[in-house]
Amino acid sequence: MWTFFHKLGSPPWLYAIAGAILRWLVPITLIALISGTVWGLLFTSPDFRQGNSYRIIYIHVPAAVVALAGYYVMAIAGAISLIWRMKMADVVMKAAAPVGAALTFIALLTGAIWGKPTWGTWWVWDARITSMLILLFLYLGVVALYESFDNKEAAGKACAVLSLVGMVNIPIVYKSVDWWYSLHQPASIKFTGESTIDSSMLYPLLLMIAAFYALFTCCLLMNMRAELLQRESRTQWVKRIADEKGRG
């Protein structure tokens, strides 16, 4: 147990294990994404009120769910880095921020595209939409703060504080549709009680949510590997990898 914990602090080990996971995870992610998209777009029946436009749910909901979960990943990594001073937690946090920002942007964009035919407008200042926009700003703030420090160790800690303070926003995003009952509909999938979505639509949606989690993990690991190489660019193990790539 403890050796595993110590190994987590070693950049070459983390680099190698992330590579090994990616070798399996990338094909699985691709298969899940493609089959989920095909299932959702071609083999489910159209909604009785929204027709075919509802199908964007298969991108919109998974992106939004994982965007919020991604913030937790970032903030928890930040807390670990502040409390136990694990430098690798900084790497996780730094890698999570741009992926989370991209997913938040996708959720907002697909929401706008769906909103035009359904609500008749690209954008409304609804509580959930506004709080998702704030989430995007929080992610971008973390990226901007990290980039403006020259000392990357201090940058990691500063971003950790910022992302922990930003955690306040996440429950507000989750609960916004219940607290302010406005245009955005409440969640259709419930873990307790009856879901308000038909099971023929639910299963491809669940597959897509799983696929987006896997996609997030893939992007996170790839970003982490890049960040590790950049941080450790003066060490032997990076030089060895660079030599191998150069010869191969």
């Binding site: 704030i134 700003f137 703030g141 901007a144 703060l145 403006s148 504080v161 910022l162 930003g166 306040v168």
Partner: peptide, 22 residues
Amino acid sequence: LTVGLKRGGMLISLLILPFYMP
């Protein structure tokens, strides 16, 4: 968080405006 940075002025707005909104 930004006091040690040379150009903190613009950055501080980006960081804290989201928290000002509520």
